[in-house]
């Protein structure tokens, strides 16, 4: 399943595509919601490894506008709950992720992104 936590860690890896290759843009997505156990410590600690703006935009692309555009300094429980939902419970099952720089399309089907490259695209 492409959850937004995973999406936030994926960049285009086509040979030579090194600028503006993150974040990938969701296209024609189908989304499924699955309840997950809330672990506030995990969410809080994970934030340092994530890119806030990319997350907010990805959430919008899958129809969730609950996050503030700027990362707040203080993380209260309500915000952590929202983040938990956005990061862990929204699953993109089908569709694609597209690189804004080179337009490479990475298809997602049955919850799995196919990010294999052709021989000539491998760096």
């Amino acid at each position: 399943m492409v959850r937004l936590i995973t999406h936030n860690l994926l960049a285009c890896h086509v040979k030579g595509c090194t600028t503006n290759n993150f974040p990938l843009v969701f296209q024609d997505v189908q989304v499924e919601l699955q309840v997950a156990e809330f672990n506030p410590d995990f969410i809080r600690n994970m934030l340092s490894r994530l890119e806030w703006t990319a997350l907010v935009n990805a959430a919008k692309q899958v129809g969730d506008t609950s996050l503030p555009p700027e990362q707040p300094d203080m993380m209260d429980d309500e915000l952590l709950q929202k983040l938990h939902h956005v990061l862990m419970e929204i699953h993109v099952t089908d569709g694609a992720m597209v690189c804004q720089n080179c337009n490479h399309i990475y298809p997602i089907s049955n919850g799995i992104p196919n990010m294999l490259l052709a021989e000539h695209e491998i760096g």
Binding site: M1, V2, R3, I5, T6, N8, L9, L10, A11, C12, H13, N21, F22, A36, Y106, N110, G111, I112, P113, N114, M115, L116, L117, I122
Partner: peptide, 25 residues
């Protein structure tokens, strides 16, 4: 993905070579 489900652990699989699209992030 199926083995994760079967064992109630959510695994996040990506079809790619080695660490591929994850390595920069």
């Amino acid at each position: 993905l199926a083995t994760g489900k079967q064992n109630k652990i959510l695994l996040d699989p990506i079809t790619c070579s080695l660490a591929g699209p994850l390595s920069s992030r």
